[in-house]
Amino acid sequence: ASVALSEAEKVYIVHGVQEDLRVDGRGCEDYRCVEVETDVVSNTSGSARVKLGHTDILVGVKAEMGTPKLEKPNEGYLEFFVDCSANATPEFEGRGGDDLGTEIANTLYRIFNNKSSVDLRSLCISPREHCWVLYVDVLLLECGGNLFDAISIAVKAALFNTRIPRVRVLEDEEGAKDIELSDDPYDCIRLSVENVPCIVTLCKIGCRHVVDATLQEEACSLASLLVSVTSKGVVTCMRKVGKGSLDPESIFEMMESSKRVGKVLHVSLQSLLHKEESLGPKRPRVGFLG
């Protein structure tokens, strides 16, 4: 997704950033307003919808029974799939969104590919035989810049919302195993999302960098840096996108600001999710009609 800007418009944006004043009035390290709602799709195990400016993301998590991977017999695993809906932009029609989808999915695999982000051991039902596989399906409904950050927030919210049914493994004398499902739908496992990282994307515009770039700002940037940060400010993964180059000094600066911004982002997301949950199952739903 991209917009066509004239030279004059670009100059206007770049000069504004120079002065720490962006087109919509934000400073360089300010996010746009984020809207989060969880439990929006009833037939998933967990779901969340995030709106960040004009970017609109829906994430569903589906827990299914599977067999653990050979090299990790005691762990479950996550699978990511990103669907770029042609509703978001006509460019995605047909197979147009596949490349972007794969790129985002790969990024997600990378940021979750460490022991601390999710406790995969808790997804194991019986070693080598059964485990939970969490299928994380991301749907892009609208692109308004800063896709990665919005997606990572939505994934985290959806994982927070995920409820995995509690099962017990029964074993008889011969060692034959059978899985028994609890008949209480409230009896389920929650995941700890404490260490799930969020992505903070920093766009290099002119000689400064901004977080949460809009589509127009992204058009002015030649290079940006994706930094995944945990709530404690630990950087778990980093990736440079765009065709421009970055000098080491500015990379260092960008990392520092990503940690700073990331921490704040995590804190406000966490408090929002807890607040929503405290409203209980009777809370009014906004959904897609709100």
Binding site: P165, I179, L181, P185
Partner: peptide, 12 residues
């Protein structure tokens, strides 16, 4: 509600 399928999976 949750249901166990014949293949052993759990479906919501």
């Amino acid at each position: 509600f949750l249901k166990k399928t014949r293949a052993g999976g759990v479906v919501k």
